[in-house]
Simulated scan of single mutants.
Amino acid sequence: MTKWQKTAAYALALYAVAVLMIRFSSGGTGWGTALLLALVATPLALWMGWLRNRLSEQAQEWGRRRVRPWPEERRR
């Protein structure tokens, strides 16, 4: 599978789970409302996951770059 196909499959699975959660977790929510709410929630959840990965990668990169050298490197 290509990266695009994996992303599409993940988004579809996330959408299906969101529809089921919204439909059966809150009382009185119909299928139409659940489908529309999941349509809003799915891109938001995907964006939040992307943002978390991006911030983690940037934190790792900033952790590698230090203004002052590590104490072990100063002794050399």
Results as ranks from 00 to 15, higher is better:
Met1Asp: 10
Lys3Tyr: 15
Lys3Thr: 13
Trp4Tyr: 15
Gln5Val: 06
Lys6Phe: 12
Thr7Leu: 08
Thr7Asn: 07
Thr7Cys: 06
Ala8Ile: 07
Tyr10His: 14
Tyr10Cys: 01
Ala11Arg: 03
Ala11Trp: 10
Leu12Tyr: 08
Ala13Cys: 06
Ala13Glu: 08
Leu14Ala: 02
Ala16Ser: 02
Val17Pro: 00
Ala18Phe: 06
Leu20Asn: 10
Leu20Phe: 14
Leu20Glu: 11
Ile22His: 00
Ile22Ala: 07
Ile22Ser: 02
Ile22Asp: 00
Arg23Ala: 06
Arg23Lys: 10
Phe24Thr: 00
Ser25Pro: 06
Ser26Val: 15
Ser26Ile: 15
Gly27Ser: 13
Thr29Gly: 00
Thr29Lys: 03
Thr29Asn: 03
Thr29Ile: 13
Gly30Asn: 10
Thr33Asp: 15
Ala34Ser: 05
Leu35Lys: 07
Leu35Glu: 08
Leu36Glu: 10
Leu36Lys: 12
Leu37Ala: 13
Ala38Gly: 03
Leu39Asp: 09
Leu39Cys: 11
Val40Gln: 05
Ala41Leu: 06
Ala41Gln: 00
Pro43Lys: 00
Pro43Met: 02
Leu44Asn: 10
Leu44Asp: 00
Leu46Lys: 02
Leu46Asn: 00
Leu46Val: 03
Trp47Thr: 01
Met48Ala: 14
Met48Arg: 15
Gly49Cys: 02
Leu51Glu: 15
Asn53Leu: 11
Arg54Asp: 11
Leu55Trp: 09
Ser56Phe: 12
Glu57Lys: 09
Glu57Asn: 09
Gln58Arg: 14
Ala59Met: 12
Ala59Gly: 07
Gln60Ser: 11
Gln60Met: 07
Gln60Val: 07
Glu61Ser: 11
Trp62Ala: 14
Arg64Lys: 12
Arg65His: 08
Arg65Glu: 14
Val67Arg: 03
Val67Gly: 04
Arg68Thr: 05
Arg68Cys: 06
Pro69Glu: 00
Trp70Arg: 06
Trp70Met: 04
Glu72Ser: 12
Glu72Met: 07
Glu73Arg: 01
Arg74Met: 03
Arg75Tyr: 04
